[in-house]
Design a protein around this nucleic acid. Structure first.
Lengths: 154, 154
DNA sequence: TTAACTGCAAAAGGTTTGCATTGGA
DNA sequence: TCCAATGCAAACCTTTTGCAGTTAA
């Protein structure tokens, strides 16, 4: 993951910020880039990744800035977050939406095709008028490895 | 919600505790009863419900006891928790499993038939060997009211 | 220039832990 | 009796907030 913050990501960010009268800062670009690079990262992981990129002596965005910007980027529609387990939420870039599947046993995260929930989404829309937001959904359960492990114990 | 802690709930609890050499305490019975009565309650809500039940002068379980027992009850398979939004997790009784649908706009929680995800569960099992745990799933999106509200603004 | 943004530090919220005491089996 | 469980208080971790200094536009 060598590329710190590809300029290609800056374009839609700059546009959306300008449209709202907000400012393009290096911190915002870096946070967005880190989210895209890390996939499934918690705010803390994002902050520490930025610290690492900055290196000793370099200035990384403050933790509070990371939080504020994650919230902003989400409002701008550039990132999404999901709650996978008990702990912190994880953020991922909004492009190429995918569905998260988490194993409650080992914590492993898989990404699956959002189309998996098309049927359920239709039914919710028809029955409740509820619009399912697939990007925010996390499915939890037990992966094959953990099931086998549990089976051989007890 | 008049019944503080129906004795009917105590039976499976006592059994499962005894099977593991653990003890049946009044605190455990109360926590379990509160989870069942409140539905979708956070640990904090459960603790404060218990304080209310105890009344002034009465002794309610300490917050740490509530946490410890929620964890235990979950290990015993009597309650489940789900993360609905950013805040605290919510607990519900493990009997009559249901699926949570949360509106990201207003926070309203609906319960829907777990069968909604049968198709998705089958596919996950077939493709990944992943066993979907429907009780832990929370679907987020936007309810009809919030969609209409958003549409009439901006 | 000027208001949005950041960094810092302190506060808040939720959860966990250590330890002496209590109480179920 | 004996050890699991509780209560209490302090610690912890993550997230939020107030404010003065900084910086994009």
């Amino acid at each position: 993951m060598p590329h710190p913050h590809p300029p290609s990501d800056a374009a839609p960010l700059a546009e959306r910020l300008r449209a709202r009268g907000l400012r393009l800062t290096t911190q915002r670009q870096r946070v967005l880039a880190a989210v895209a690079a890390l996939e499934h990262a918690t705010p803390e992981e994002i902050a520490s990744q930025l610290r690492e990129e900055a290196g000793p002596g370099g200035a990384a965005p403050d933790t509070s800035t990371v939080y504020r910007n994650l919230e902003l980027l989400e409002r701008l529609g550039l990132v999404w977050h999901t709650h996978l387990g008990k702990g912190a939420p994880v953020y991922h870039a909004a492009e190429h939406p995918h569905l998260h599947v988490v194993c409650a046993g080992c914590g492993e995260i898989s990404s699956v095709d959002p189309a998996l929930l098309d049927g359920a989404a239709e039914r919710l829309a028809a029955d409740l008028g509820f619009q399912l937001d697939v990007g925010h959904v996390a499915l939890s359960g037990t992966c094959r490895a953990c099931r086998e492990r549990a089976g051989s114990e007890s």
